[in-house]
Amino acid sequence: MFKSALIISMFLVAVIRAADESQAEITKYRNEIKEDGSYSWEYGTSNGIDAQESGVGGVNAAGSVKYTAPDGTPIELEYTADENGYQPRGAHLPTPPPIPDYILKALAYIEAHPFTRIQLKK
């Protein structure tokens, strides 16, 4: 009985500590903005959040963020943003299902047999 009570109380303390992040403090902070429009910043907090980014304002950016999800999963996200849009990368992000074989075969056939356009008379 005592072991069960001890385990339950330790679990509750862990949950309460994880849920209360209002006391988190900034442990590192850096912010640089240059005259040519380039910039970089980074920060870290006592509850394990680390983030950084650098780039040229309005042109491109690259950065990352690391933290622990409420379920205890470590999250690491890297990203770039440029003329190709926002491109996040991380093991926690969903991935599309594989393309079925019949679609791949159809695409290969279409590529091997291009359509010849028909010119209509005016």
Rank of each mutant, 00 (worst) to 15 (best):
Y29M: 14
P74S: 09
Y39N: 03
E25D: 11
N31E: 14
N84E: 13
P96G: 14
Q23T: 10
A19V: 00
A19C: 01
I26K: 02
K105S: 04
N60F: 11
K122F: 12
L120E: 05
Y86I: 00
G85Q: 03
Q87W: 01
K66S: 12
K122V: 10
S64Y: 13
F2T: 09
D82Y: 06
K66W: 02
Q87N: 13
A91H: 12
S64T: 10
T73R: 12
E21T: 15
I16M: 09
D36P: 02
K122C: 05
N31W: 05
G37K: 09
T80C: 04
E83L: 08
D50N: 14
T80R: 09
K121S: 11
I16T: 08
V65W: 05
Y86D: 03
S64D: 13
I103W: 05
N60I: 04
G44H: 04
E32I: 13
V56C: 02
A91K: 14
A112Y: 02
Y43W: 07
I99V: 15
P96H: 03
A81G: 07
G48A: 12
I75C: 06
T116H: 11
I103G: 03
G63D: 10
A69K: 04
A69T: 04
P96F: 04
A81C: 09
P114Y: 08
L107I: 10
L104M: 14
E25F: 08
N60S: 15
Q119K: 13
G48K: 13
